[in-house]
């Protein structure tokens, strides 16, 4: 009857032939719409395939020239066209490691505050404020890091670090050198602020999913808030928390603009985290438009491929973990 209703026809006794025609058209519409949406869903797959394929194709000249050495060679010399990726890979891993070292405990602590300690009225505003940190575009973190944070570190924090650890054997290499302000440590700290909201909001969500009964039984036994967190909430939500951490790690690894501003862009592995370095994404952002020659461009795309493969693995693990906890809760 839809056909009649749609055309506002009061004539229910209309001819059978036009009705069949209208119904046929509706059926065609249906098939068309179904396939249109299906095509769009497949297009999403094709985009990812396209990203993969274009990166592999673009990096082929560099990968076939340097082979496996590309991954372990430190030299990055556009003039002699010798390229190795280990410098940027090292920088990416170290900055992300510093970021996670700070953001994971702080993020979990904030999530604990929001779920267990915070007055109900403040819960939403504080949660939103922390999430706003995720909304600030990364270029803002970059410009802020360059003009405000790096000079501050250079003047106060870094000299103190150098003085404090200068005498201790291992740490003296880690904190060696003049305080540049910009460098690996600065980039890691900025990344920590940037991934903090991701870790906080996911941990808060999984903490909230713990059955109140479990927590209440623990409180009933006389557990303190910390003991409830440590022995009830955390074990229960472990998989989800790890998923959230991995998601944050994926962000940190791929973050470009903020890092480009503050890392100093030096293709050199240094033992000191106060020294300038570079990351995969910062190298691409800095050099891609100025790259002359196919091999140079291709080497940069190969860096992009490495970054994509690393983040793909990290994000896939994160999704898998989060899916597991969703299944248990749902």
């Amino acid at each position: 009857m839809v056909d009649v209703a749609l055309h506002g026809g009061a004539a229910v006794t209309a001819d059978v032939a036009p009705r069949a025609k209208v119904l046929g058209r509706l059926r065609l519409n249906d098939i068309f719409f179904r396939n249109l949406t299906r095509g769009a869903a497949i297009a999403v797959l094709i985009i990812l395939g396209g990203v993969m394929f274009s990166l592999v194709a673009g990096s082929w000249p560099a990968l076939s020239t340097f082979g496996f050495n590309f991954l372990i060679e430190e030299r990055w010399n556009p003039v002699t066209e010798r390229f190795g990726a280990i410098g940027p890979i090292y920088g990416t891993i170290v900055t992300s490691f510093i970021a996670m070292l700070i953001a994971v405990p702080v993020g979990l602590m904030i999530a604990m505050f929001l779920t267990e300690l915070c007055p109900i009225k403040l819960r939403r505003p504080i949660g939103i404020a922390i999430e706003l940190l995720a909304g600030i575009p990364s270029i803002i973190y970059g410009i802020w890091g360059l003009f405000v944070f790096a000079p501050f570190l250079q003047q106060y924090i870094q000299p103190a670090l150098i003085a404090a650890f200068g005498e201790i054997p291992l740490l003296s290499t880690l904190f060696a050198g003049p305080p540049y302000g910009i460098g690996v440590l600065t980039a890691g700290l900025i990344l920590a602020i940037m991934v903090l909201p991701f870790i906080t909001s996911i941990s808060r969500d999984v903490f909230d999913a713990v059955p109140p009964l479990l927590k209440e039984s623990a409180y009933g036994l006389g557990c303190t808030t910390w003991e409830v967190m440590r022995f009830v909430v955390l074990p229960y939500t472990r998989v989800g928390v790890i998923g959230g951490v991995m998601l944050g790690l994926g962000r940190a690894l791929g973050e470009t603009m903020a890092v480009t501003f503050v890392i100093g862009n030096a293709h050199k592995i240094s033992g000191s985290i106060l020294a300038p370095g570079t990351t995969i994404s910062a190298t691409i952002a800095n050099e891609f438009t100025e790259a002359v020659g196919d091999l140079y461009t291709s080497a940069l795309i190969a860096l992009g491929l490495i970054l994509f493969v690393i983040t793909f693995i990290v994000l896939a693990v994160a999704r898998y973990m989060l899916m597991r906890i969703e299944k248990r809760v749902g």
Binding site: I47, L55, T256, G304
Partner: peptide, 12 residues
């Protein structure tokens, strides 16, 4: 995965 893929890779 695409949702959190590094945007610089999308640029490449």
């Amino acid at each position: 995965i695409l949702l959190s893929a590094p945007s610089i890779v999308i640029g490449l």
